[in-house]
């Protein structure tokens, strides 16, 4: 079965809409069995309508900017849970926006939550930054923001660095600067818990299929550095904090969960695939 994970749309307060190409791609009624909205997705009637056309089976959790209750077909004021669990085949899948998780986005905190919820896969959001990794035999997936909405988190270091370095470089080099960028994390690599001591603790089951040459060049692209103008154009992605529009699709067959990561870079959709098996 196919499970779609969308998060942090922030329509309309931070973004206008999901990229058109995403909408076209997802416009396949009756293909996807379940949709999870991992927070900050309930402010837009048109967005929810769109989600409803994908599947009527929607699971939602509360993000910090969601109202406390949402109106559903069953209940005009259904309370939005902070965390919930979906059972699919042998998998228990936890969903949580993670805005009450301290420290935010911390792999060990997420692991603790996964243990508490007794889940194999944990879907979370709130960071506007797509990533997926396995830790302690569990699969952690953050689909990022489906609109690439503005994030109030710290701006990624490489983005800031980029602006700093352009000061020192010759204008000619500044424009090619972008290609030297670290690929922004569609973290295909298996991320270990940050602590040194537990570095080898992960028993990683994920087979990673990497899409090479996937590094993004959207930063500073074709940008000319002008010394005397103070009205330079800045990349919207940088302004938004570095997050690109993205979402995840989980294909669950028996004990295998295949994760497809869709990202929207330079008006093109890129797909990455990660396979996770339950022991």
């Amino acid at each position: 079965m196919l499970l779609l994970a969308l998060s942090d749309a922030h329509i309309p307060e931070r973004a206008i809409d999901v990229p058109l190409k995403f909408r076209k791609l997802l416009n396949v009624p009756n293909k996807i069995q379940q949709v999870t909205l991992l927070g900050n997705c309930t402010k837009s009637a048109s967005f929810l309508k769109f989600v409803n056309t994908i599947s009527e089976n929607i699971v939602f959790v509360r993000g910090e900017f969601d109202p406390a209750t949402v109106s559903t077909t069953k209940n005009p004021a259904e309370e939005m849970p902070l965390s919930t669990v979906i059972s699919q085949g042998p998998f228990r899948i936890g969903c949580c926006n993670g805005y009450t998780l301290v420290p935010k986005n911390d792999p060990l905190s997420l692991l603790t939550l996964a243990r508490q919820l007794d889940v194999d896969i944990l879907l979370w959001g709130g960071t506007h930054n797509v990533e997926a990794y396995t830790l302690e035999g569990k699969f952690f997936i953050n689909p990022g923001s489906c609109t690439g909405a503005f994030s109030t988190d710290w701006v990624q270091e490489d983005v800031e660095e980029n602006y700093k370095t352009s000061e020192q470089q010759e204008p000619a080099e500044a424009s090619t600067n972008g290609s030297n960028q670290q690929p922004k994390e569609i973290k295909e690599e298996i991320k270990e818990p940050s602590n040194n001591d537990s570095e080898k603790s992960g028993e990683d089951k994920a087979d990673i299929i990497e899409d090479k040459g996937n590094s993004e060049e959207h930063l500073q692209e074709g940008k000319e550095y002008e010394h005397d103008s103070s009205d330079d154009e800045f990349d919207d992605i940088d302004i938004n904090g570095g997050g690109i529009p993205s979402f995840c699709l989980l294909d669950i067959q028996d004990i295998t969960c295949t994760l497809y990561i869709y990202t929207y870079v330079d008006n093109e959709i890129k797909v990455d695939k990660v396979v996770y098996r339950k022991d």
């Binding site: 379940q34 902070l82 669990v85 508490q116």
Partner: peptide
């Protein structure tokens, strides 16, 4: 029934009819 307690202390209880849970 399998029940877990969520991060805010709410009971997450699997419904028999579907794949989702009552929270």
């Amino acid at each position: 029934q399998t029940i877990v307690i969520g991060c805010d202390g709410s009971y997450i209880c699997k419904t028999l009819s579907s794949s989702t849970c009552m929270v």
